[in-house]
C-alpha cells in the first residue's frame, strides 16, 4: 500500500513530468491559455495516459516479451497511443464541440506527446507491476494536469498585466514556468525513490 502511495506522490509532485522531467512541454505551453481548456486537456491526458500505461503494460507482457520483439516497443506503443487519442478525439467531438475546438491541434498532438510515450516507456524500464504501472500513468497525468491547471490560472492573470512588449507571449510564459519549476524543487526528497 505504501509503495503505491509513494509511486503516486512521486509521479504527481516530486518527479512531476512537466516541471522536473520536462516532458509534455508542448501542450503545457499550448493549451494553458484558458482555464476551461486546461481542465479539459487535463482530463483528456489523464484518460489517455492511464489507458496508455495499462495498454502498454499488457502489450509488453503479452506480446512483446513472449514473442521477443522488444525492439519494436516504440512502434507498438505509438500505435496504441494513436488509437487511444483518436478515440478520445471522437468522443470529445461528440460530447463537447467547444472544448474540441479549443484544444484544436493539441488534441491529436497528444499522440506525439512525449509525456504519454514517456510514461509507457518508463513503466517498462522501471519494471512496475500491472497496478503500479497503471497508478504511475495516472499519477503522472494528474501531475501534468495539476501543473497545467495551475499554470493556466497564472496565465489568465498575466493576460491583464501590462507586460513589456518584448516579453509578451512566450517569454513571460517561459519565465513563469521556470519559476514554477523552481518552486517545485521544494518537493525534492519528499519521497525517496
Amino acid at each position: 500500500m505504501t509503495e503505491f502511495g509513494v509511486i503516486l506522490l512521486s509521479a504527481v509532485l516530486v518527479n512531476n513530468y512537466v516541471l522536473t522531467k520536462f516532458l509534455g512541454i508542448c501542450p503545457f505551453l499550448g493549451v494553458s491559455g484558458k482555464l476551461e481548456t486546461a481542465i479539459g486537456m487535463s482530463f483528456a491526458v489523464m484518460f489517455v495516459m492511464t489507458l496508455a500505461s495499462t495498454a502498454s503494460w499488457i502489450i509488453q507482457q503479452l506480446i512483446l516479451i513472449p514473442f521477443d520483439i522488444m525492439y519494436l516497443q516504440t512502434v507498438f506503443f505509438i500505435l496504441i497511443i494513436a488509437a487511444l487519442v483518436q478515440f478520445v478525439e471522437m468522443v470529445m467531438h461528440k460530447t463537447s464541440p467547444v472544448l474540441y475546438q479549443g484544444l484544436g491541434i493539441f488534441l491529436p498532438l497528444i499522440t506525439t506527446n512525449c509525456a504519454v510515450l514517456g510514461v509507457a516507456i518508463l513503466n517498462v524500464q522501471q519494471d512496475y507491476s500491472f497496478f503500479a504501472s497503471v497508478l504511475y500513468g495516472f499519477g503522472a497525468a494528474v501531475g501534468f494536469g495539476l501543473v497545467l491547471v495551475l499554470f493556466s490560472g497564472l496565465r489568465e492573470r498575466l493576460e491583464a498585466a501590462p507586460i513589456p512588449e518584448v516579453f509578451k507571449g512566450s517569454p513571460i510564459i517561459l519565465i513563469t514556468a521556470g519559476m514554477m519549476a523552481l518552486a517545485f524543487m521544494g518537493f525534492a526528497g519528499l519521497v525517496k525513490v
Partner: peptide, 15 residues
C-alpha cells in the same frame, strides 16, 4: 519549508 510553501501557494492563488 516556509519559503517554498508560500511560493507554491502563490501559484494556486488564481485558482
Amino acid at each position: 519549508g516556509a519559503m517554498f510553501a508560500v511560493v507554491l501557494m502563490n501559484m494556486v492563488t488564481p485558482l
